[in-house]
Amino acid sequence: MTGFKALRGQDRRGRWERREHLGRWGDFGGEGPPRAAGPGAARARPLIVTEDVRLLDDLLRLCAAAGAEPEVHHTLPERKGSWEEAPLVLVGDDAAARCRGAARRPGVMLVGREQDDPAVWRLAVEIGAECVLRLPDAEGWLADRLADAAEGAAEHAVTVGVIGGRGGAGASTLACALAVTAARAGRRAMLVDADPLGGGLDVLLGGERAEGRRWPDFAASKGRVAGTALEDSLPRLHDLSVLSWDRGETVTVGPDAMRSVLAAARRRGGVVVVDLPRRVDEAVAEALAQLDVGLLVVPAELRAVAAAEQVASRVRMVLRDLRAVVRGPCPAGLDGAWIAEALGLPLVGELPQEPALSDALERGAPPGARARGPLAAFCSAFWERALGPEGGARS
Rank of each mutant, 00 (worst) to 15 (best):
A66L: 15
L123I: 05
T252E: 13
L123K: 08
R105Y: 03
F378R: 04
E350Y: 06
L288N: 01
H21I: 11
R166Q: 08
L262N: 10
G206N: 05
S395Q: 06
E130Q: 13
G164E: 02
P389N: 00
L319W: 05
D321T: 02
L357G: 04
A37G: 03
A157D: 08
R8W: 06
L7D: 04
A44T: 05
L322Y: 00
P329N: 00
R266Y: 04
P277Q: 07
E354S: 04
A365R: 15
P70W: 03
M109E: 06
L234S: 15
P216M: 07
E78M: 10
R363K: 10
I48V: 10
E151V: 02
L76H: 14
P367I: 09
G294H: 00
A66M: 15
G294F: 01
A179M: 00
R12D: 11
V253A: 06
S380E: 15
C330H: 04
Q10L: 11
V120I: 12
A183G: 08
L135G: 11
C63K: 02
L357P: 02
R45D: 03
S233I: 14
L205A: 03
H73A: 11
P46W: 04
R12M: 08
A68S: 10
V132T: 12
L133K: 09
L88G: 00
A220T: 13
D359W: 04
V53N: 14
R278W: 03
A68P: 12
R45P: 03
G3R: 08
R98T: 07
V203M: 12
A381E: 15
A185F: 09
L262T: 07
W121G: 03
G168W: 11
E17F: 08
L22S: 06
G223D: 12
L90Y: 02
A283E: 03
A308Q: 00
R15I: 01
A265R: 04
D11P: 07
A103N: 10
L291V: 03
A300R: 04
G107L: 01
R188T: 02
P367V: 09
E69F: 13
L262P: 10
V348I: 07
E350V: 14
G165R: 01
G199R: 12
A283H: 04
L110V: 05
A210L: 06
L59G: 06
V305A: 00
L55H: 06
W215E: 04
A306S: 02
C330I: 07
G364D: 11
